[in-house]
Design a protein around this nucleic acid. Structure first.
Length: 417
RNA sequence: CGGGCCGUCAUAUACCGGCAGUAUGCGUGCUUUGGGAGCACGUCGACCGGGUUCGAUUCCCGGCGGCCCGACCA
C-alpha cells in the first residue's frame, strides 16, 4: 500500500478523551478512531490487525470442524422472551421500530443459533456439529471504559456446538480449550485458563485471561501450579494459600480474551432443539458456546506490545510485514534515481507476496517518516535513500541494530520474516 | 445506577466578568532533506439552552457529551 495515496490518521498528540493506554496509542497511531464512548471505527491499519487476528482464529475453528456463518444483529423480541433474557440481561440493547414493535440488538447469539440448529437436527445422526461467526456485538454496558477492552460495540468470534450426549459436549469443550490455547499462543499472548461463573449462561465457565494491569477482572492466581479463579467465585485475599498446592495466591488483574461455557440444555430446550436417539426417544440437544473478543484482543496487544516510541507488533498480527521508506533527498537527479530504486523494490516485494506499506510520500522529512514508522510498529523497516546507495537498510522494530543488505537480498529477508 | 472531575481553533493547552494567547497542524513562498527542520506571511476557536449582569467564554441552573472511581459485567 502506497502511503502517498492514503489518508493519514496519525496524530502528534495523545487524545485527551482517553485514559486507557490501548486507546491512546491506537488512536494516535491511526489504527482506530473514537466515535463515542465505547464505540470505535477501525481504520486501514487497525482493520488489517483485526483481519490477521481473525485469520488465526479462523484456522483453529476449521480445525475444530466448525463452519463459519453470519447471523443478524437485529433480533426478534420473542426469542429473547423465550429464554427469559429479554428482562434479565441488562446489557441488552432494545430498539423500537416504526410499527412500535421491539427488537433486540445482538449481544450474543444463543437466541438465534438455537432455533437455527433446530432446523438441522432431527436425529442423533445429525449431531454433533458446530457453527461460528465473527461479528459486531452490541452491549449496553453501564459504563464503557478502558478503550477497546470494554466497548458497547465490539467485534467477537462466537462459536456454538451441538451435541447428543454430555460426554460428547465435554470432549468438544476440552478440544475447544486446546484450540483456544493454540490461538493465544499464535497471537503471542500468554493467556491463563481461569475458572469463572457462568453469568446468565451456565453454572460455571472458563475464561482465558491475559494478566495485565489494564485488565478489568481480578484473578486469584497461583504462580506455582497455575491454579486460577476469577475473583467473582473465589474471595481469596493476596497471600492466602492455594487450595491446590498451598503456595501463596496472588491477586492479578486480567483482561478476559476468551470465555467458554457448557450451556447444556439451557438454550436448546426453550427452542425445542431436540433429536431422536437410537431408541427413538426424544432428547434435548446439548450446547456449548465459546467466545473470543477480537477487537478486545487488539487492545490487549496494544497494551502489551509497545515501547516509548510506539507500537511493536508481533509478526503474526502486524498490519503489514514490512514498512518501506524512501528518502528522496534534495538533489532532483539523485531523488529520481532513489525513487526509481525504491519503486522497484516495492514492486518486487508485492510480487513476492509480502504485505508492504510503502512510505513514498514526498513532503515529509526523514525524521517524520522514522517517527511515524516507529509509531506504527511494523516488524521490519526497509530504507532506500541516497545514503544506502545500491543497497537497502534493514531494521527490526524490536531492535536497534541496522544492517545494509544487497538489493536482491531484501525480498528474501522479508519472506522469511 | 451512585460519586468526582471536565467541555476553549483541526489537535494539545493557557488566561480572563470587558482585548481569547501559545504550540502543533493547515495554506503560500524561500531555505532545508537520515530522527517530528528553519524563517516570513496567512488561516482557524469558547458544546447547547436558560438565568444573573451594563456586559458571560468566564458566575448560576438545566441539557448534551467525555474521562475516572464504585456498582454491574455474555
Amino acid at each position: 500500500m502506497r502511503q502517498s495515496q492514503q489518508p493519514s490518521f496519525i496524530r502528534k498528540d495523545f487524545p485527551k478523551d482517553e485514559e486507557a493506554y490501548n486507546a491512546q496509542i491506537l488512536i494516535r497511531a491511526g489504527f482506530v478512531d473514537k466515535v463515542m464512548a465505547g464505540v470505535y471505527s477501525y481504520l486501514p491499519l487497525g482493520l488489517r490487525v483485526l483481519d490477521r487476528i481473525e485469520n488465526i482464529v479462523r484456522k483453529r475453528m476449521d480445525e475444530l470442524g466448525a463452519a463459519q456463518i453470519l447471523m443478524p444483529v437485529l433480533h426478534p423480541k420473542e426469542n429473547w422472551q423465550k429464554t427469559g433474557r429479554w428482562g434479565d440481561l441488562d446489557v441488552l440493547f432494545k430498539v423500537i421500530a416504526r410499527d412500535k414493535k421491539e427488537y433486540a440488538l445482538g449481544p450474543t447469539h444463543e437466541e438465534i443459533v438455537a432455533p437455527l440448529g433446530q432446523k438441522a437436527v432431527a436425529s442423533y445422526k445429525d449431531l454433533p456439529f458446530a457453527l461460528y461467526q465473527i461479528q459486531t456485538k452490541l452491549r449496553d454496558e453501564p459504563r464503557a471504559k478502558s478503550g477497546l477492552l470494554r466497548g458497547r460495540e465490539f467485534l467477537m468470534k462466537d462459536l456454538y456446538s451441538f451435541h447428543a450426549t454430555e460426554s460428547d459436549l465435554e470432549s468438544y469443550y476440552a478440544r475447544a480449550i486446546e484450540a483456544y490455547r493454540a490461538i493465544f499462543r499464535d497471537l503471542g499472548l500468554d493467556a491463563v485458563l481461569v475458572e469463572a461463573s457462568g453469568g446468565t449462561f451456565s453454572k460455571y465457565s472458563h475464561e482465558f485471561q491475559v494478566l495485565i494491569d489494564a485488565g478489568e477482572d481480578t484473578v486469584v492466581y497461583c504462580e506455582k501450579c497455575h491454579f486460577a479463579q476469577n475473583k467473582e467465585i473465589n474471595d481469596a485475599r493476596d497471600g492466602d494459600p492455594c487450595p491446590s498446592c498451598g503456595a501463596p495466591l496472588a491477586l492479578r488483574s486480567g483482561a478476559e480474551v476468551g470465555n467458554i461455557f457448557q450451556l447444556k440444555q439451557k438454550y436448546s430446550e426453550p427452542f425445542g432443539l431436540a433429536y431422536r436417539d437410537a431408541q427413538g426417544e426424544q432428547k434435548t440437544v446439548l450446547m456449548g458456546c465459546y467466545g473470543i473478543g477480537i477487537s478486545r484482543l487488539m487492545g490487549v496487544c496494544a497494551e502489551l506490545f509497545h515501547d516509548d516510541r510506539g507500537l511493536v507488533w508481533p509478526a503474526a498480527i502486524a498490519p503489514f510485514d514490512a514498512h518501506l521508506i524512501v528518502l528522496s533527498g534534495a538533489d532532483a537527479v539523485v531523488a529520481q534515481e532513489v525513487r526509481r530504486r525504491a519503486d522497484a523494490l516495492y514492486d518486487s516485494l508485492v510480487a513476492a507476496g509480502v504485505d508492504v506499506l510503502y512510505d513514498d510520500r514526498l513532503d515529509l522529512t526523514a525524521g517524520e517518516k522514522f517517527a511515524e514508522a516507529d509509531l506504527t510498529g511494523i516488524p521490519i523497516r526497509l530504507v532506500v535513500s541516497q545514503k544506502t546507495g545500491d543497497r537497502v537498510e534493514i531494521k527490526r522494530r524490536s531492535q536497534t541494530a541496522v544492517e545494509l543488505v544487497d538489493f536482491n537480498e531484501a525480498v528474501p529477508y522479508c519472506i522469511q520474516k
